[in-house]
Amino acid sequence: MRYEKPQTVAEAARLLTGEKGLSRILAGGTDVLVQLKAGLVEPDLVVDIKALPGVRSIVAEAGGFRIGAAVSNAQLGEDKAVRALWPGVVEAANLIGSTQVQGRATMVGNLCNASPAADAVPALVAAGAVARVAGPGAARDVPVEKIPTGPGKTKLKRGEFITSIFLPARPPRSADAYLRFIPRTEMDIAVASAAVSLTLDEDGRIAAARVALGAVAPTVLLVEAAAKAILGSRLEDPALEALAAACSAAASPIDDKRGTVEFRKDVVGVLAKRAARIAYTRAGGQS
């Protein structure tokens, strides 16, 4: 295994495309090192992207924020402006692992690890976040939900890597929230999760909504039927029940050591309801 720490995007792309064997990108390393340790991957090349320009900063852009690929979740959590605009995204990123893991883990890493249970991803999808993909060719922007294609798999081509994530501007009366279910209070992988992002009209009715679910399908699900269920409502009980039912119906989870199909389908609906209530309150809605 070789370890390289390129200083430019072009150099990184060159290293990655030039490698005949297996390569891995290293930012926070909290997934890569676990896989190395377990012998799940034996890369020939590890490219540490932390020296690339801009990857360690959070920059305001077009009313939103560009979050560099090597921004740790701890650093993200300390940024009051991002937290104010996208509280759900920040709380999702801050739920990953321990304080120690927060010191290293990144949202981009969470996305590229492509686990269906990734905490940051449902919140990013609900937020309509966009990933900037660099590589041998020109950089391109890809909606976050298009990146993972299945457990451990992404749409990124050979030599490509993500340099930042863009969180867009928001209209007034907008907010988001993320909830996951874990058996303990910390340190577990989500058994089911839900992110809700919504915008209210002046009457406190939901004018726009995005609902994304984690750990209930091979990739994070963006559930339009769930969003529709609460559109126009003030999150009255029937709307919430319809939201939960739409989420449970959209979920196609598996039985595994962390939970059963039945449990995940039930709980993902419960989480969506609770997350919707939090987002609604954050957006200024009175329920």
Binding site: P183, T185, M187, K257
Partner: peptide, 8 residues
């Protein structure tokens, strides 16, 4: 320790 869940 990830999935053998001792109390934290």
């Amino acid at each position: 320790f990830l999935d053998y869940r001792i109390p934290v």
